[in-house]
Design a protein around this nucleic acid. Structure first.
Lengths: 133, 133
DNA sequence: TGGCTACTTGACGCTTACGTAAACGTAAAG
DNA sequence: CTTTACGTTTACGTAAGCGTCAAGTAGCCA
């Protein structure tokens, strides 16, 4: 049963799709765009923990409203280890930009949550009035 | 000078576009999709504070990664005042859903910010090493 | 009256992010 | 040995969100 050890650390495309609730097409599309690069055993794709993590990052990026191109840059940023100083400086600059974007988004979310809270209390007040009659 | 009073409370399409840094096409597109409904003076569009606010909400929604369809529902939620109890209950339900989505997004943002911070400190450590030589 | 400027309505084009079908390969199970 | 499950590539289709002309109109200014 040494197959167990392998299957604990790898996924088929269908397993990955089921876990993250996306279609096979989506996963293949991400590969096409260079976001994933699974091992090939013959023609069949085998996904390793690295790919598993990357798919998680990609989908989180999507939830945050980033385009696949942006996500590609971000994810590549995460696991590349550029030894050169110029690259590091560039990367630090990119990190700052992403952080600024994310903080802007958080402000947007907070504003919206506040307004939703307002709206909610007004609704509940209206409901009370209606039900009091 | 009673024209001043008017221009303080209305905008031309170009003024609105300049303020929010979007194109005229974009604004007209939003109207086409039912998100904006400016006054018409002849064929010319006149935007009132209501439209001004709505455009702000639309663009914030976009920054948050909502589709125009979703934004349409949200924005309509904001300024509709449905008197009936059924409507209010529905609205309260929608509010809960939106809030859940937004809170999920905030968690995503926080995770990403943490990881960016990690990445940043590693980069800076690497830079120090390089420059120490 | 002519010209400039800002506005209008089509209408076709383009990119992104997949959906969807067609046609085929492979391997285990009955 | 065929069925079933799961995988593959190729390729056209599609919805969203605008960009980009083209061609016309309406007001103002010299």
């Amino acid at each position: 049963m040494h197959n167990r050890a392998v299957s604990a650390l790898t996924w088929s495309i269908a397993e990955l799709a089921a876990e993250y609730d996306v279609t096979l097409r989506t996963i293949r599309f991400y590969e096409d765009r260079g976001l994933l690069s699974p091992e090939r055993r013959g023609t069949v794709r085998i996904y390793h923990p690295r790919d598993h993590v990357r798919l998680g990052l990609i989908l989180r990026g999507k939830r945050l409203g980033f385009s696949l191109d942006e996500i590609s840059k971000i994810v590549t940023m995460y696991d590349e280890q550029p030894g050169e100083a110029g690259q590091l400086v560039y990367l630090l600059d990119q990190i700052t930009k992403r952080r600024d974007e994310l903080e802007q988004r958080r402000r947007d979310i907070d504003k919206t949550l506040e307004e939703l809270a307002d709206l909610e209390s007004r609704c509940q007040a209206d409901l009370k009035i209606l039900r009091a009659r």
